[in-house]
Design a protein around this nucleic acid. Structure first.
Length: 283
DNA sequence: CTAGGATCCTGTCAGC
DNA sequence: TGCTGACAGGATCCTA
């Protein structure tokens, strides 16, 4: 799914297009994709908590949106603005087969598309947003966490694989499979190391790497965002331009030239430079 | 409490 | 062509 940089990119786009606009109607095409009662109201806040997006309405209710693996938000109005899981839906005629919820606004339409139906939109009371179980469990984002705090957290998960640890949103918030691999590569840490074996310096390097990698992605519009005005389009280009290892198996490592390989760690596809990220002989 | 694996769902692609 | 299994930018639930 969209990881933190993609969701932040969506937030900024929605701020431009739908902030202050009124939701006139919500049409739910897939029951699983909408939890609670659809709401009508003016959008008076657009917030992000980790990978979750919150639209605050002027009726004391909020819509929480989580895209999970394949969710997309596509705004179609005076311009089209789309972000989330990359696919033809960004430029397709909508609604289509993967459209789960249609949000009609006074100035356009916001489509929630989601191939695998893991994502959802949920109505919650605005004052209870931070008490929502998902949001309550979230740890700090890399920018808010100190290297010491991060190291302490890792010490509490001694036996976890480091990749699993940084994917755990209750340990550190915002990373997903792309930025986990990119951060570990940048910090030269093998993803299958046990979290407890990282030195303080390695933990600090990893934290700093996570910030840098996600900062860079946000700056370039995430890895999967697409906007277009008339025929003129730009795309989020993190993967093409900045990813060093993610989905680059067989390509030379930009640091040492060794071929990047793909393996499986913590149940997820994982990309590493076997030379820059040596696996230790023992845990 | 932690750690690991199955699971939700649809679609695509490689290999027979 | 048709089938089959693996896999996918996430998080939760169940088990040991």
């Amino acid at each position: 799914m969209p990881e933190l940089p993609e969701v932040e990119t969506i937030r900024r786009g929605l701020l431009k297009y739908i902030f202050g606009k009124k939701i006139q109607k919500i049409e739910v095409l897939c029951d699983k994709s909408f939890i609670g009662t659809p709401q009508i109201g003016k959008i008076v806040g657009i917030r992000r908590f980790g990978k979750a997006l919150i639209l605050d309405l002027d009726n004391q209710k909020s819509l929480m949106i989580h895209l999970r693996m394949t969710g997309q938000l596509i705004y179609d109005g005076e311009e089209r603005y789309a972000a989330g899981h990359p696919s033809d839906n960004f430029t397709a005629k909508l609604p289509n087969k993967q459209t789960r919820v249609i949000i009609e606004l006074e100035n356009g339409t916001l489509y929630f598309n989601d191939q695998r139906k893991f994502g959802f939109i949920k109505t919650i009371i605005t004052k209870d947003v931070e008490k929502d179980p998902f949001i309550q469990k979230l740890a700090k984002e890399p920018w808010q966490m100190t290297p010491e705090e991060f190291y302490e957290k890792l010490q509490k998960h001694q036996k976890s694989l480091i990749k699993a640890a940084i994917l755990d949103q209750s340990l550190i918030c915002g990373l997903g499979n792309i930025y986990a691999d990119e951060s570990l590569f940048a910090a030269r840490i093998h993803p299958a190391r046990r979290a407890g074996t990282l030195t303080q310096k390695e933990a600090a390097d990893l934290l700093i790497a996570a910030r840098a990698v996600m900062d860079e992605s946000i700056k370039s519009g995430g890895s999967t965002m697409a906007t277009y005005v008339k025929a003129d389009g730009t795309k989020g280009d993190y993967l093409e331009k900045f990813a060093k290892v993610f989905r680059r198996e067989g390509c030379p490592c930009p640091r040492c030239g060794t071929k990047v390989i793909k393996t499986k760690v913590a149940g997820r596809g994982t990309h590493i430079c076997p030379k820059c990220q040596p696996e230790l002989a023992h845990d």
